[in-house]
Amino acid sequence: MREQRRRPTGRSRRAFLQAAGAAGLVGLTGCVGSGAERGGNDGTARDAPVSILAAGSLQNALSNGLEPAVDVPIQVETHGSATVARLIDEGKRDPDIVSVADVALFEKPLSPPWHAVFTSNAVVIAYNPDTKGGKRLAEAGAREWYKTMASDDVRIGRTDPDRDPLGYRTLFTLELASRYYDDASNLRRKLLKQDQIYPETALISRFESGSIDAAIAYRNMAVERDYDYIDLPDEVDLSNPEHEDEWYSTVSYSLPGGQTVHGGPISYGSTIRKTSDAARNVFAAHTTGDYLDEYGFLLRERFPTYEGDVPQRVKRATVQSGGNRPAGAQSMLGSAPGEPSSVVSGGRS
């Protein structure tokens, strides 16, 4: 079983990110190598920003990691992925690129003709070591975190399962942990309360305000803010494709619209909705960039992989931008292909 991880010495990244702000809508102007400009063949205006509507957990990576890799203006808006899907499905947003934290949302309600699976993640227990509750959690470590979190002395934060995949993956993790640990049972009932729910884009920032001691979060959310976190067993953290059949697929959650999402390895997906040279180049940098590793996401050798009828010009742009990552860039998870993260049944979210 993996133990808790320590944040890097100092808090320079956290200070930088605080200064950058935690707003969900971020306008960016940056520069990248291809020199491609929006416009030309498809009639779009030159220098118009490429818009990205994305999962909240991608916010800092896109705002502070992707920006140096592109030479056209980009505009990033982030929400929980289920909200992203609803905004597009209801006609309230029409971005050039959409990226979600669960590729199941590309089956319903979005149903694009193709998408790329480009990164993964893991569910961890992030905590603030400067609070009383956080110190107690640090002492409990990877073997007894669930006992400490069941105490009223530890204030827990999580996200809404009806709005984003992290919310329902939190429920999956607790159900799997109840099965994994011999002395744990019904952790969802013991740990979770309605007043623990915060927006995904503001969850970890609650540490700074002192509102919570611990958060059930994605690994990247703790890494990019230099917070300590406890690694969970592979059978529990939804990161390892080897445990999909026996563990992850045994849990599920029904979204308000009738869509049932089943557990699976975490897989982030992206697609281009409005094609242009600029969008293709931004998409290529977005889905192949090493910035994803720097911001705590998990990379596999074969990422990105594709589903559906992928345009050849998209494939060429991706190969030119980096193609499949070399073996040295893969994560501790090895070189498993980008498998779908969920199986969906029922109606629309």
Rank of each mutant, 00 (worst) to 15 (best):
M1A: 15
R2Y: 13
E3C: 12
E3N: 14
R5E: 08
T9N: 09
A15E: 15
L17A: 03
Q18C: 09
A19E: 12
G24V: 01
V26H: 13
G27Q: 12
G27L: 14
L28A: 13
L28P: 08
V32R: 13
G35D: 03
E37D: 09
R38S: 04
G39L: 06
G40W: 06
S51K: 03
G56N: 08
A61S: 13
A61W: 03
S63I: 08
G65Q: 04
G65S: 09
P73F: 02
I74E: 03
T83Y: 04
V84Q: 02
A85S: 12
A85R: 05
R86V: 01
L87A: 10
I88L: 09
E90S: 10
P95F: 09
I97H: 02
S99T: 13
A101C: 06
P112N: 08
P112I: 07
P113F: 06
W114R: 00
V117Q: 12
N121T: 07
V124N: 11
I125A: 14
I125T: 11
Y127H: 12
N128E: 06
D130I: 08
G133E: 06
K135L: 11
R136H: 11
L137S: 14
A138K: 15
A140M: 09
E144I: 03
T148L: 09
A150Q: 12
S151R: 15
R155C: 03
R158M: 15
L166K: 07
L166V: 08
T170R: 10
L171C: 01
L174Y: 01
L176N: 00
L176Y: 01
D182K: 14
A184N: 09
K190R: 15
L191W: 05
L192E: 00
K193H: 11
Q194S: 09
E200K: 07
T201G: 11
A202C: 07
L203K: 11
S211C: 02
A214D: 11
A217W: 09
R219Q: 10
M221R: 01
M221V: 07
V223C: 02
E224F: 03
D226T: 09
Y227N: 13
D228R: 10
D228L: 03
D228N: 14
Y229V: 05
I230T: 12
D231G: 12
D231W: 05
V236N: 04
L238Y: 05
P241F: 04
H243W: 13
D245K: 10
D245S: 13
W247P: 00
V251Y: 02
S254I: 08
P256G: 07
G264W: 01
S267R: 08
S267A: 14
Y268T: 10
S270M: 12
I272G: 01
T275C: 11
A278L: 00
R280Q: 11
F283V: 04
A284N: 00
G289P: 02
L292S: 07
L292G: 07
L292T: 05
D293S: 15
Y295F: 15
G296W: 01
L299A: 12
Y306K: 13
V310R: 00
V310W: 00
K315N: 03
T318E: 08
V319R: 02
Q320C: 04
S321K: 01
P326K: 06
A329Q: 15
A329T: 10
G334R: 09
P337K: 10
G338E: 04
E339V: 14
S341M: 07
S341H: 05
V344P: 04
S345P: 04
R348G: 08
